[in-house]
Nucleic acid binder design. Sequence first.
DNA 1: CATAATGGCCGAATGAAATTAAGCATCAAT
DNA 2: ATTGATGCTTAATTTCATTCGGCCATTATG
Lengths: 180, 180
Amino acid sequence: MKETDDIRSLAAATQQLDPMDRKILAVLVEDATVSYAELGKRVGLSAPAAHERVKRLKKSGAIRRMAALIDPGAVGKGLLAFIHVDTSGWGKTPALMAIAECPEVEEVHSVAGDACMLLKVRAASTRALEGLLARLYDTPGVKATRSYVVLSTYLERPPQPGVTLSWPVPKAARPVEIAQ
Amino acid sequence: MKETDDIRSLAAATQQLDPMDRKILAVLVEDATVSYAELGKRVGLSAPAAHERVKRLKKSGAIRRMAALIDPGAVGKGLLAFIHVDTSGWGKTPALMAIAECPEVEEVHSVAGDACMLLKVRAASTRALEGLLARLYDTPGVKATRSYVVLSTYLERPPQPGVTLSWPVPKAARPVEIAQ
DNA sequence: CATAATGGCCGAATGAAATTAAGCATCAAT
DNA sequence: ATTGATGCTTAATTTCATTCGGCCATTATG
């Protein structure tokens, strides 16, 4: 094995995806059930070539996994809320992190700003949300919370492969994307 | 056709999922690539029966779609932020909703609380985030924004089928879930 | 400059899995 | 009790994922 192998493989894991990869990702993010033949047709590749690309994207971690996206309402979780948590001292305590065990907690971030932690939670009812808040206040170090209950959701989607190019956009202009 | 047909089909779309459906959802939310044979084995069903269930869950809308979940870093979006938007007057204007066109905008909600709109955005850099904010301030009706830049993410996952049962939990107790 | 080696693609072949079909048990309603 | 609907099973068929061998382009190497 030559030393360039290590360099190349390391670079491969980090390197930018080529346009073909982005096209493939764009398709699979929208619909992961397409056959490789169909995927290949859409991006201009044969089925085995498309398959090879996808395999590589999975191995490199660019594709984390294929998942079913379910309707929260269908599983009885009609209430969505974001919760800002203020903590005394360092926020990332095991006791606080334990709330990640609740299936209603979908996201836990530490953020810069006037809050320490930011939670995205989806619960069955205000009653359940109250239960979660009670649980939070029971956690040592939690000083205060502010809840933002979602009234309606206009957009909600997983990470997209596209990136806006021309950023400082003139008033009311439509942004331009790459990676179609 | 009997009138009960309409009632029944309407009820079917709204009705609670049975435990078998929840088990199926729990599997597919984690990994949508399992074969029907494997899925059936895990939940205690034959492959065609599992297939039938999944088909029904899709048709009813409980499963919205199968999607590839990609690594934001791999597509050059290492920066995650939540943006609170204050608007003068009613927030849901077409001009504001237009930002949903940007692939960096993953979520747009209207919320109750001291903010009108809440955005989840994922961008390549602080420069790109600044560009998005500039775009926001260019939008008529946008009065102020507060950004919460994510320092690190401890949990991030799509909606889960499980629900916590016993809510008002004693101090430091582990919550109990159904729908295993 | 020539040549080997690598990476990426294609078409064809093979094997596995999705999907359909047919039959049977259970339950509800007539 | 009987009919109809639902949901499951096993078995059969067809589609698709996956592998294989060869080809072309680009890149490293003598």
